[in-house]
């Protein structure tokens, strides 16, 4: 009996095996699969409704545990992480701002130091220039004074020389006239005549 059933199955299988893998639907439609009906729809079984009651209780307990305990734990970790990251970012941002202002200060200090140094250099150069100028002026003034004095002395000497020249000319003229004519001429006539002669020669 079992042998013949096995052989008949084998015969059918040898015909159908190529199709069998592709046609589960055929077997699903076989009467054997449906004869009992779906256990899910067997509402005479108290276990079918029982699982709904149990399910409600279990779902409620799961909901309460998740919403009161498990999920807030996750949320706390996520929140603390967000805060940690935000704090770290804040610290980093503040440090960066401090560094930036320090760099700015440094630049400012450098700039002002450079300006100060430049001003000092300028002042020193200006002072030196003014001192040199003043020295030159003093020197020029002294030289001018000395030249002036020398010129005055030359002029005085010349005037003195010219003065004594008239006297010599007067006396020489009087002597010459006396020697030539044997008569003496009054001094004022001689002086006048010499004056004329001297003026005519530009003396």
């Amino acid at each position: 009996m079992a042998r013949s059933a096995a052989s008949s199955i084998r015969r059918v299988a040898s015909l159908l095996t190529p199709l069998a893998l592709a046609l589960p639907v055929m077997v699903m439609a076989a009467p054997g699969a449906r004869a009992v009906g779906m256990p899910q729809l067997d509402f005479s079984n108290p276990l079918v409704i029982g699982q709904v009651v149990w399910g409600a209780v279990i779902f409620l307990v799961l909901y309460l545990l998740l919403s009161r305990s498990a999920l807030p734990k996750v949320e706390a970790v996520l929140t603390s992480r967000r805060q940690t990251i935000d704090n770290d970012l804040d610290i980093a941002r503040r440090a960066k701002a401090e560094a930036d202002s320090a760099v700015d200060e440094l630049h400012q200090a450098r700039r002002s130091a450079m300006a100060e140094a430049q001003a000092n250099v300028d002042k020193v150069i200006e002072d030196a220039r003014l001192a040199a100028l003043r020295q030159t002026q003093d020197m020029n003034a002294r030289l001018a004074t000395e030249i002036h004095e020398a010129e005055a002395r030359v002029a005085a000497a010349r005037t003195a020389a010219l003065g004594s020249l008239r006297q010599i000319a007067d006396e020489t003229a009087q002597v010459l006239v006396r020697q030539v004519t044997g008569t003496s001429v009054p001094a004022d006539v001689v002086a006048r005549t010499v004056d004329h002669a001297a003026t005519a020669r530009g003396l």
Partner: peptide
């Protein structure tokens, strides 16, 4: 020869 595909859903 029969396949009990729905027996797995029995409670």
């Amino acid at each position: 020869s029969t396949i009990d595909a729905l027996g797995q859903f029995e409670l």
